[in-house]
């Protein structure tokens, strides 16, 4: 049958949900082992943070889409949590292989890492649901208001921190569809072109530090 925008969107949603049928919205057994191997066990903090971010997400979702759609917000959030745990496990397996270590205490106790990872997973979920209408220039669905960088405002996340997880996210989730990889690439582009250069961006502090560290690699002239 011909591929209509609605059919394409439905397929993407089915594929996303299909890929998460065996995933849980709780950490898997493998993830729990990684948590227990940490010098400081992050389990409690992770669960607490997911709960808090869930409340914020559902509230902002309902404000944007309509209070009657609160249930939809919860469903989207649950899918995002499932995806983020799945990707976290895959990332840690890769890191274990690459670094030959099993103690990821610093990474797993880094709140910004977890928030950025959850935000990336939710961006994939939200973009999948909005998919068809956005691609065709339509804006009938109020969910188009939730497109990037909406999630950064909801979680009060610096764009530069979100940017840092994108590549590893794509590598860790090989079932990610082509159009979703393109979407994440566009988010990256948007961050580097504009959003990362807001006054409170951590990028300025990093640039200052790198200048103070003395002559290393020379920055390109501003015009370039």
């Amino acid at each position: 049958p011909p591929q209509t925008p609605i059919r394409a969107a439905m397929n993407s949603i089915q594929q996303l949900r299909g890929g998460l049928t065996s995933a849980s919205d709780q950490p898997s057994g493998n993830l729990i082992v990684y948590f227990k191997n940490c010098t400081v066990d992050p389990s409690e903090e992770i669960t607490k943070r997911v709960g808090q971010l869930g409340q914020i997400f559902c509230q902002k979702f309902a404000e944007a889409v309509g209070q009657r759609c609160e249930g939809l917000g919860k469903t989207r959030f649950t899918l995002g949590v499932q995806l983020h745990y799945k990707v976290m496990e895959s990332m840690l397996k890769s890191e274990e292989k690459r670094l030959s270590v099993q103690n990821f205490s610093k990474l797993l106790n880094n709140a910004t890492f977890h928030t950025s990872l959850l935000a990336s997973a939710l961006e994939v979920v939200l973009a999948t649901y909005v998919g068809g209408s956005l691609k065709n220039g339509g804006s009938e669905s109020p969910e188009t208001d939730l497109c990037f960088p909406w999630i950064l405002d909801v979680f009060q996340l610096h764009a530069f921190d979100f940017y840092k997880v994108i590549e590893s996210f794509i590598k860790a989730e090989p079932t990610l569809k082509h159009d979703m990889i393109e979407h994440l690439g566009r988010c990256e582009h948007q961050i580097m072109e504009s959003i990362a250069w807001k006054a409170d961006s951590p990028l300025f502090e990093l640039l200052r530090q790198s200048r103070e560290e003395g002559p290393g690699e020379q920055a390109e002239p501003p015009a370039t």
């Binding site: 690459r98 880094n110 910004t112 840092k164 997880v165 794509i170 590598k171 082509h178 990889i181 690439g185």
Partner: peptide, 21 residues
Amino acid sequence: SQDYHFGLEDHEGISELFDCD
């Protein structure tokens, strides 16, 4: 992911990006 430009080298990963060991 063929059209995505991977900028990280093979020896870099998420741990380095979040300033971890």
